[in-house]
Design a protein around this nucleic acid. Structure first.
Length: 143
DNA sequence: GCCAACGTTGGC
DNA sequence: GCCAACGTTGGC
């Protein structure tokens, strides 16, 4: 199982939207590096959900419910990908970017390092740490 | 609103 | 294939 982080401006699409809708087509990614990460996602992978621009915090965890397929919002012949996501758990305490930046443990987290990448991998250790910071303690993560 | 960090574009 | 110009992202 692999771990990821996606970012979204909450005014565009928030974790609440995902909870209400139950599933979302994660489309519109137009960066090759981010696209390549989308393509590495497997069903069941866990995905941190970060609110950019406003909030600046990880607000919850989603999971991949459909692996990469052709992005329906891409123009013909353009090779972009989408995945489907579903909500898993909202953090009781959202984890602020500021907090992650203050902790040297997260100095190599891609969210901290290259803030522009909208889809990024997260190590298992970082993932679990962020879950704990978010106040989620009773969550079982399979190997 | 500013601007640093990137990514893309296009002339050469 | 280099690189200057430009556009976008996103934290501050």
């Amino acid at each position: 199982m692999n771990f990821w982080l996606v970012k979204s401006e909450p005014t565009e699409y928030s974790y609440s939207n995902l909870e209400i809708e139950g599933t979302v087509v994660w489309s519109g990614v137009r960066n090759y590096q981010a696209r390549n990460y989308l393509r590495q996602m497997s069903v069941g992978d866990l995905v941190l959900f970060y609110h950019s621009k406003e909030g600046l915090e990880v607000v919850g965890c989603a999971c991949v419910s459909r692996a990469a397929y052709a992005d329906p919002t891409a123009e013909q012949d353009n090779d972009w990908s989408a995945v489907d996501l579903e909500p898993v758990i909202r953090f009781p305490t959202p984890v602020k970017l500021k907090r992650l930046k203050l902790n040297p443990k997260f100095s190599d987290l891609l969210l901290v390092r290259s803030s522009r990448l909208s889809v990024s991998p997260v190590s298992r250790a970082h993932f679990i740490s962020i879950l704990r910071l978010g106040g989620v303690h009773q969550f079982f993560i399979p190997d």
